[in-house]
Design a protein around this nucleic acid. Sequence first.
DNA 1: GGCTGTGAAGCAGTTCACAGCG
DNA 2: CGCTGTGAACTGCTTCACAGCC
Lengths: 255, 255
Amino acid sequence: MVGDARASRPRRIPEATIVRLPVYQRILAELLRSGVTTVSSEELATRARVNAAKVRKDFSHFGSFGTRGTGYDPALLVSQIDRALGADREWPVVIVGIGNLGRALANSDGFSSHGFCIAGLYDVDPAVVGSRIGDLTVRHLDELAAAAGQQDRPAIGVVATPPSAAQTVADVLVAAGVSSILNFAPRVLNVPADVLVRYVDLSIELQVMSFFLSRRDDESLAEADGAAPIGTGGGPVGVSQRGGPPDRRPDPPPS
Amino acid sequence: MVGDARASRPRRIPEATIVRLPVYQRILAELLRSGVTTVSSEELATRARVNAAKVRKDFSHFGSFGTRGTGYDPALLVSQIDRALGADREWPVVIVGIGNLGRALANSDGFSSHGFCIAGLYDVDPAVVGSRIGDLTVRHLDELAAAAGQQDRPAIGVVATPPSAAQTVADVLVAAGVSSILNFAPRVLNVPADVLVRYVDLSIELQVMSFFLSRRDDESLAEADGAAPIGTGGGPVGVSQRGGPPDRRPDPPPS
DNA sequence: GGCTGTGAAGCAGTTCACAGCG
DNA sequence: CGCTGTGAACTGCTTCACAGCC
């Protein structure tokens, strides 16, 4: 809102905001479906379980779409968020590792919605290669390597293999020209500096929960101290949060 | 390190640190297996793709386990991290929603390792209820509700249902006495303030990647500006990071 | 000399609180 | 008067830089 008034150029949106946009979007889409034509930051904040000021600041990073005294138009917001997220293009995704998880992902509709299409399924197990999932045939990983400098090369690679194969697969993906990798294997990946890796890691999530669970136990045992429990403000379990937003959760690094 | 010298009481470990501990632990376990008896913060940092100072500060939050001039003893670190994470206890986990994802989770060894045990699998689909996975039989969700005030009640609940069922399932989990929920459904959950929810959301991850992908495209188009690309320091793609740590990734809130 | 442990500086993200517009 | 948009304060995390111990 200072220099550049051009609404087109996003100019530095914080990553923390980016991660919340899809959540708002989901909520807005639902409101739209139920015929709502205006929504306040307060209303959205409640549904998203965040602070209303955060909602307003998040939106302010890419424009002023609200009407003072009234609120926001869900339809407008949805389209602006789509644009900010780059959902106007379709990114081809390949999934490597067609076990239970890979299959779950392939069937998930997290892809079909919102500008992604599955461009290929890969594995190395002869028992799996050649089988069909939806209208796609699982191919051998070697064929992915061959897809290298092709015009049809994938933009995003999903690693759903056992950890022991993850680094090798990542190498193949990078060689095939992928520039973002979503890694479900519990392993830090080594990739070139210009490739983005994000991690989804069940066992980290569980261990974080374990931490808060035992923390809580410790606290109930130690019901003696001063006034506040230990946490930041009045939070119940140390850092952790009122039914949701311990907001934030890093992703592991590569090996 | 100020007042209480008692090594037992963790005294406020930042959540950001907690999330990295499992990563270090994994790396340390591997080093141990290969017979390494000492490791520097630098070495660990490289493998974890983080800054060495961060590694040292992370450990410093729960004690001084290193030897100056030498490094850390992996075995000692592993045991200390385990303790900090509360891995000395076994937390019973229930999984609700036995589709592809639920099955993948049930078969995953993210549970068996590190102090978790699957205490129950639940679904509502008659085609699934009664089937066996490993040595567990899938039960009807109603039986979970019945498990309420029991001594054997689960500590952690995993929601692996379609989004439309997620809130209902969360309610049942809370009623059954669960105090942490790991939600794989793309939906913000409403739970009481003392229940911790963490979110794992494929479509958010993809959309974040989409953002960075289009961001990058925009940048290559606009190869004109000043010296630095746009990002914080010298990072290649705005915020995003050298092959890994855009460190951080919030979780959506509940509806 | 090497590497840990840690104050202090720096930075990112959140929250407050209010000015400004409808 | 209500609700957005935003400077400014604040909180938490990261990084630097170095003192201290081996």
